[in-house]
Design a protein around this nucleic acid. Structure first.
Lengths: 201, 201
DNA sequence: CTATCCTTCAAACGTTCGTTTGACTATCGG
DNA sequence: CCGATAGTCAAACGAACGTTTGAAGGATAG
């Protein structure tokens, strides 16, 4: 999280973990395989929970609102912030950072781990917003995911840009409300003003 | 852009640029000073233009709408996508990536380069949205900036997650419309549903 | 107890990193 | 034309990188 994947050496890593340097290659095989294991350990359960929550939502009500879908989508990510024994904010920062990581293997892995959940949520949104053109929905999900990724990754840097005090801690419940309000409004925003976009799908 | 700052060596860099390895240290002093020069060259004019456009907007109409402010804010960043001789999308990707870069010196530099423009836009938004609590505005600007940063940084990765075809090119004008519609709706979204937030500033 | 397997560890491997050196070349004011 | 200045370049520097090695330790089944 602090120095990026390529900027973190196995020596400092193993030293901080108080384990032997060679142990990583013995147990995982390589540095790349280690980071893959790190991501799989957190992301597989997270996306499984994300899908399970959507299933539960759709079981309770046949046609959940876009806002409700957004909320459960966010919840799975934000829950990790407060899960301190799973890395808490350190892991979410690493994760949010990695979304924009252009390294081929990591990129492919992340895409693969998210694909099933993304497909499920996309079709759920299509049912909740039938009048929204499909390509517009994709862009807006793209924006939505970006806001989440950035919020997870945000270091104090750009909070200082906005003039935010460090006293504002990352409360997951409050953040969920704020993000849901913001993203729901964006997702259901009217289309007028967007050049070259036909009004219906 | 492809391998990150720490993952890019001076040797490959200078080889691609067809210059001698030692030339960088001769002219810039160090690798860190080089990347700082790269950012300053693009970001100083961009944020200057961002402020100038806001000045012009406020001169034309005394109280511009939030949507108009968002639009000129986005325009300065999105203009770089199409400015191919300044690096085009390669630079915006590098830039969007760097917003989440936790490296201390780069972080401080980015914050310093953005601070004046951010302060100007923050007060402009406060005038356009007087009923929005100040801390809520900061969060929403934070989200807004995140969406922009992610959109700039987005590799094909998460577009594949959303199922987007590679044929969709990054058209700056269309992207500006889409982002403006999305972000404006989020920025002016009603506050109900946000726990623990008082309705007025 | 012995033999076998799993694990740990210090040391070393070869490579690559950012940076420095010192000789060489071009440019140009006087 | 010449001395000074500025720039280029191949080579080398020490350090740090990911990974491998081989010996030593510890547990367990027969």
């Amino acid at each position: 999280m602090q120095h990026g994947f390529e900027g973190t050496s196995m020596r400092t890593l193993t030293a901080k973990a108080s384990v032997n340097l060679a142990a990583v290659n013995y147990h995982f095989g390589s540095k790349d395989a280690l980071i893959e294991a790190v991501f799989r350990r957190r992301l597989d359960p997270m996306n499984a929970a994300r899908i399970a929550e959507l299933d539960r939502l759709e079981a309770a009500a046949p046609a959940p609102s876009a806002e409700a879908i957004i909320r459960v989508f966010l919840r799975a990510s934000l829950a990790m912030i407060e899960d301190v024994k799973s890395g808490g904010r350190n892991f979410t920062r690493l994760l949010g950072r990695t979304y924009t990581e252009p390294s081929k293997p990591i990129r492919a892995l992340i895409g693969q781990l998210y694909a099933p959940a993304m497909a499920r949520y996309k079709s759920a949104f299509e049912r909740a917003l039938p009048e929204l053109p499909k390509d517009e929905l994709i862009w807006r999900m793209h924006f939505m995911f970006g806001t989440l990724a950035y919020t997870l990754a945000a270091t104090d840097t750009v909070q200082l840009i906005a003039g935010c005090k460090p006293e504002d801690r990352y409360d997951a419940a409050l953040l969920e409300d704020r993000l849901t309000a913001f993203l729901n409004a964006g997702l259901v925003a009217p289309l007028h003003g967007v050049r070259g976009v036909r009004k219906a799908a």
